[in-house]
């Protein structure tokens, strides 16, 4: 489902004398449907960079980034947008929403974007918010005013609203209490069970051991010290 072939990434800083900073080289990995792979490595090793390359947020310098058969490194913007809409979900650490949109709409939005019936989308969003213990009185409010923990749970609900065949999870359990942590882990288990290919970053070792099938140390892709 997700396959990287010899991917490299570097940043060229044109405004600082054209310095080229290689950050990743020879990255290859495969994630099958129903599999959850954890990215490991020290802070700064390039876990987030790799996730962003898969999502198309960072442009790979060379190699292939195949998600559901589409080479993200070469695709047109609209192909990547369609991929993100239908195939590839991304749960980041921070909620980025437009002000004034009610929480329930924020969560249902990915479903509405793929043309799901409004009532079905709303029901599913409500179910997710309830599971993640967001009090119903908050659903009609914009999440911009929520606490950090609440925002993160809204973000997770949004990320799991649509059953993406491929998912990227960036610290999904960070700063959650035990009960919500369990809920998120079971959401991940359910996603795997329906065949989603998942790549995640988990600092929470317990969580990683519970849901991940294997680990990939991104330090292996870090360019030599010579750089």
């Amino acid at each position: 489902m997700i396959e990287l072939k010899d991917v490299s990434k570097s940043f060229t800083l044109h405004n600082q004398g054209g310095a080229v900073i290689p950050v990743m080289t020879g990255a290859s990995l495969q994630v099958a449907p129903g599999e959850c792979v954890a990215l490991t490595g020290a802070s700064g090793a390039g876990k987030s960079t790799l996730m962003r390359v898969i999502y198309g947020n960072y442009l790979a310098a060379s190699g292939q980034v195949l998600v559901g058969g589409l080479d993200v490194a070469q695709a047109e913007p609209r192909e990547i947008l369609a991929l993100r809409r239908e195939t590839l979900g991304y749960v980041s650490q921070f909620l980025r929403v437009v002000p004034r949109v009610p929480t329930l709409d924020v969560v249902a939005e990915p479903l509405l974007a793929i043309g799901c019936d409004r009532q079905v989308a709303m029901d599913k969003a409500a179910g997710l918010l309830a599971r993640l213990n967001i009090p119903e009185r908050l659903w009609s409010l914009s999440p911009t005013t929520f606490s950090g923990g609440e925002q993160q749970r809204v973000n997770i609900a949004r990320g799991f609203a649509h059953d993406y065949p491929a998912m990227l999870l960036d610290e999904p359990t960070a700063s959650l209490d035990a009960q919500n942590r369990e809920t998120v882990l079971s959401l991940i288990e359910e996603a795997k069970a329906r065949g989603a290919a998942i790549v995640g970053i988990f600092h929470d070792v317990g969580a990683r051991d519970q849901v991940c099938d294997r680990e990939i140390n991104v330090s292996d892709f870090t360019p030599g010290v010579a750089a």
């Binding site: 405004n15 198309g56 947020n57 960072y58 913007p77």
Partner: peptide, 21 residues
């Protein structure tokens, strides 16, 4: 030219980098 978040988060051209920064 490209995807909005990609151009803004990973600008390739010198001018875009200047603009973003």
């Amino acid at each position: 030219a490209g995807l909005t978040d990609q151009v803004l988060d990973d600008p390739q051209h010198a001018y875009t980098q200047l603009l973003v920064s």
